[in-house]
C-alpha cells in the first residue's frame, strides 16, 4: 500500500518535471524576445551574467517602432483583413455546412466532394494561376485580394459540417414540424449551439490570416497596404542590427493573437473534439 503511494508520488513528480521543462522550452524564446526588446545592442547577446531586465531598460523602443516604420498602418491593415476574413469565413462556412449536414438535396455529395478534394491541395499548387486570375479581376495590390483568398476555405465548411452532424437531427425535425423555416432553424437553434466549433474556427482563421506571409507577399506591394508580417520582415532587413526595435515590433505583433486565443481557448479543446478533427 505504502509503496503504491510512493510510486504514485514519484510518477507525479516526473510529470511535473517534464511539464516544467516543456513550459520552459515553450517560453524561453518569448522571454528572450521580451528581454531583448528593452536592451541595447551591446547587452543583447551578453550571457555572463544574463540579465532579464537591464539597468537602463529602453522601454521607448516600444514607442519608436511606431515612428520608424508605418507600424500603425500595418496594424490597421492586418486588423481589417483579419476581422473581415474571420467574419466572412464563420458566416459563409457555417451557412453552407448547415445545408450539407442537415438538408437533403440533389448533388449534395458531389458538391461536398469538391470541397473535400481541395483540402489536400496545397495552396502553393494553384497560387500562380490564382494570381493571374486575380490580376485579371483588377485585384492585384488590393486588400480585397487577400479577403477573397482566405475567406472561402474548404476547411471551414468541412469542420463546421462535422460539428453539425454531431447535433441530433430530431432537434431540426421538431422545429420543422413547428413550421420554422430553415433560416430560422439555422439562426435560432444551430448557431447558438455551435459556440465551441465557431471558437475553434475563429482561432484557426484568425491565426492563419494574422500570420500569413506568402499571400500578402504576392498580392500586396504598395507600402501602405502591407500587413504586419510583411512590415516586420521589411523592418528586419532595413534595421538589421537594431535588435531592440525588431524585438519590440515582434512583441507587439503577438499581442492581438494572444488576446483572441486567451478569450477563446476554453472552448478550444472541446471544439476540436466535437468537430471530429481528430479524424
Amino acid at each position: 500500500m505504502k509503496s503504491a503511494k510512493n510510486h504514485a508520488i514519484a510518477q507525479k513528480t516526473i510529470v511535473y518535471i517534464i511539464l516544467i521543462i516543456i513550459a520552459l522550452l515553450m517560453l524561453i524564446p518569448f522571454l528572450w524576445m521580451f528581454s531583448a526588446a528593452i536592451k541595447s545592442d551591446r547587452e543583447v547577446f551578453q550571457m555572463q551574467p544574463f540579465v532579464f531586465i537591464p539597468e537602463n531598460a529602453k522601454w521607448n523602443n516600444y514607442l519608436d517602432i511606431w515612428t520608424k516604420i508605418p507600424f500603425a498602418k500595418f496594424v490597421g491593415n492586418t486588423v481589417f483583413l483579419t476581422i473581415v476574413v474571420t467574419c466572412l469565413q464563420l458566416l459563409t462556412s457555417s451557412f453552407a455546412a448547415y445545408s450539407f449536414a442537415k438538408l437533403e438535396f440533389k448533388h449534395r455529395n458531389g458538391l461536398f466532394f469538391a470541397y473535400i478534394a481541395t483540402i489536400a491541395m496545397p495552396w502553393q499548387v494553384y497560387m500562380v494561376p490564382q494570381f493571374i486570375m486575380m490580376r485579371k479581376f483588377g485585384l492585384n495590390d488590393k486588400l480585397l485580394a487577400i479577403i477573397c483568398l482566405q475567406a472561402f476555405s474548404a476547411f471551414g465548411v468541412f469542420m463546421m459540417k462535422q460539428f453539425y452532424e454531431g447535433i441530433p437531427n430530431e432537434l431540426c425535425e421538431a422545429a420543422r414540424v413547428d413550421g420554422m423555416s430553415e433560416y430560422k432553424i439555422y439562426g435560432s437553434i444551430m448557431l447558438p449551439l455551435s459556440k465551441p466549433a465557431l471558437s475553434t474556427l475563429t482561432i484557426f482563421t484568425f491565426v492563419n490570416t494574422w500570420n500569413d506571409y506568402l499571400g500578402p507577399l504576392i498580392y500586396l506591394k504598395t507600402e501602405t497596404k502591407k500587413t504586419i508580417q510583411l512590415g516586420l520582415k521589411m523592418f528586419i532587413s532595413q534595421y538589421s542590427s537594431d535588435y531592440g526595435l525588431i524585438m519590440a515590433g515582434s512583441v507587439l505583433s503577438l499581442i492581438p493573437v494572444l488576446i483572441v486565443f486567451l478569450i477563446l481557448q476554453r472552448y478550444f479543446v472541446e471544439g476540436v473534439a466535437s468537430t471530429g478533427l481528430k479524424g
Binding site: 515553450m26 517560453l27 518569448f30 508580417q229 516586420l232 524585438m247 505583433s253 493573437v257 486567451l262
Partner: peptide, 17 residues
C-alpha cells in the same frame, strides 16, 4: 495555453528570435 503559444505566434517574430 503555454504549449499553444508558439503556434499562434507570428512566424516572422519567432524566427527572428
Amino acid at each position: 495555453t503555454l504549449s499553444f503559444f508558439p503556434y499562434v505566434a507570428s512566424l516572422v517574430a519567432v524566427t527572428a528570435v
